[in-house]
Every structure is written in structure tokens, then in C-alpha cells.
């Protein structure tokens, strides 16, 4: 949930950009923001919907990336800033986990891009149904975005891991679904009342796995799927699929068991 101070700064940004027209950049270096890297990361972290963000620094260099829910999905055009060879490492990185070693490449690239920057601008394109609509500043309808978390459909990161196809097929039939990449939640979908227990189960499974010796953990890298169901008269099931360090937890109605078994079988072929 966006903090109130962030929301206020965004409202201030909107006021500043009230004369913006489509296709123009808006300034990220708002009053009180002295660090370009922080401004850039804040912009990415705050992005909930799938967007293409094009950043432009002091020297006119640009770097385009597609992001969703604080996660860099891919590098996108236009790019005039020289990216290191490892720029592929940007893909799938979660800016909210910037303390973790795995995103050091992201931080390095952005730090380099923002070095010495006094002005930093961004152009935001909302990507929906393969059509692009340019958005400058913050549309009025987006002001209430931080309060609509439950109504959003989070992006399931296609092609990001071995379970993506399975998760995408499960999602429409699931009561709730949650994905983990390593220890990090990569997506979740469903009412919070069902997501919370899924998170609890995921946490408990992680804690249990961390207690096991390394050899046993490595054995879990083989894909497997476990489905536990309650009394036939009640009829709910919880599925946990594991593959290559990724996990998907699905809560569903047991009457749909065949469907989920088929999803798993077909995703393994």
C-alpha cells in the first residue's frame, strides 16, 4: 500500500504536471528529492500495472524498461544509455528486494544512469491488451490506485520460471493462488481472506525447508505437486507445486480436481 507521504508527493507531481500533454516527460526530481537513483527506484516501486517507463537523465540518455508491481520485466526501447552486457540480468528483478545480492546488477545500472543527475524525467506508458496509451504525469483516475489493491489483477510473470504456464492455467479456476520465486512472493491473486492463509502455509513450508540439510533440499528441485483435500463433504483443496526453486500454492474447490490434475500433467509435457 502506498504510504500517505508518497501519495502526497504524487499529488504534488500531478499539480506540477497539470499542463502536461501526451508524449511529454515529467520531472521526477521533485522538491526534497536530491538523489536520482532513489527517485527512479521510487517510480518503479510504485508501478502497480504493467507499464513501460522511459527514463531520461541530464545528458539526454534514455533507458526504457517494462515494469509491474515493482518488478523489472524486460528492457524496452528506446535505449540510448549504454547498458552493460549483463543487462539481461535486469529481467524479473524485484526492486523491493534491493537489499538482496541478486539485484546488484539492477542497482549498478541505475546508479550509473543516474550518476550526477540533477534532472531526471520519466515518461510512462500503460500497457494493456497490447495497445499502448501514453500517460504523462498521473491521471486523475490513478490517484485512487493505492486504495484499489484488492480489485487489481496482478500480473503472473509469463515465462519467468518453470511453473508459469501451470500457474497461468490454474489462476482462472482457483479460489486463490500465490507464487514464490525462491523466498520472494512473485505474484498473488484472490481475495485477501484466502491469500493470507496461503501466505501462512508458504511461510511455514519455507521455514520447514530451511530446517532440512542441504542434500534434502536439493532433492526437492525435482518437479512435484502435492494436493491436500479436506473432508469430501466440505470440498476444498490446497495444491503446492514445486519446480526449480519456484513454488505455486493454489486454493481451489475439490470438484475441480480433475482440471488441476490436467493442468499439471500438461504443463509437464
Amino acid at each position: 500500500m502506498t504510504e500517505l507521504t508518497t501519495l502526497q508527493s504524487r499529488i504534488a507531481s500531478l499539480t506540477q504536471c497539470s499542463d502536461s500533454v501526451s508524449g511529454r516527460y515529467r520531472d521526477l526530481m521533485l522538491p526534497g528529492m536530491t538523489d536520482g537513483l532513489s527517485a527512479m527506484r521510487l517510480e518503479i516501486e510504485e508501478t502497480q500495472l504493467l507499464r513501460r517507463l522511459v527514463f531520461q537523465n541530464d545528458t539526454g540518455n534514455t533507458i526504457g524498461i517494462e515494469v509491474a508491481s515493482g518488478r523489472v520485466l524486460r528492457v524496452a526501447e528506446p535505449i540510448t544509455h549504454q547498458l552493460p552486457a549483463e543487462c539481461a540480468d535486469l529481467i524479473g528483478q524485484d526492486l523491493l528486494e534491493d537489499h538482496h545480492d541478486q539485484i546488484s546488477a539492477v542497482v549498478d545500472i541505475f546508479r550509473n544512469f543516474c550518476a550526477g543527475t540533477e534532472t531526471l524525467r520519466v515518461e510512462s506508458h500503460i500497457l494493456a491488451e497490447k495497445k499502448e496509451t501514453s500517460s504523462v504525469g498521473i491521471p486523475g483516475s490513478k490517484l485512487c490506485e493505492p486504495f484499489l489493491d484488492l480489485a487489481k489483477t496482478p500480473e503472473i510473470l509469463s515465462g519467468q520460471n518453470d511453473l508459469s504456464v501451470f500457474a497461468e492455467r490454474c489462476a482462472p479456476s482457483a479460489t486463490a493462488i500465490l507464487g514464490l520465486e525462491g523466498d520472494v512472493i512473485s505474484f498473488e491473486l484472490g481475495p485477501d481472506e484466502f491469500l493470507k492463509p496461503l501466505r501462512d502455509v508458504a511461510d511455514a513450508e519455507q521455514a520447514k525447508a530451511s530446517e532440512k540439510p542441504g542434500t534434502e533440499r536439493s532433492e526437492e528441485s525435482e518437479p512435484n505437486c502435492i494436493i491436500l483435500s479436506e473432508h469430501p463433504a466440505n470440498g476444498r483443496s490446497l495444491l503446492r507445486a514445486t519446480a526449480s526453486g519456484s513454488q505455486v500454492f493454489v486454493l481451489f474447490d475439490t470438484t475441480a480436481l480433475t482440471k488441476f490434475l490436467t493442468f499439471w500433467t500438461e504443463s509437464r509435457v
Binding site: V201, N224, C225, E230, H231, R236
Partner: peptide
């Protein structure tokens, strides 16, 4: 056991009905 308890908590049934079926699919 523990696995059943963790999942049963997720179902949040007041009567603590328990797990009656488990399927483990491996390669």
C-alpha cells in the same frame, strides 16, 4: 501430521475437520 495441520489451518474450518486426501505427484 504437521503438513496436514498447516493446510488445515489454511482452510480455517471452525470444526477443525482435518485432511482426508493427499496426492503426491512426482515424475
Amino acid at each position: 501430521g504437521d503438513s496436514a495441520k498447516r493446510v488445515n489451518d489454511a482452510f480455517a474450518r471452525e470444526d477443525d475437520a482435518g485432511i482426508y486426501q493427499a496426492i503426491i505427484i512426482e515424475t
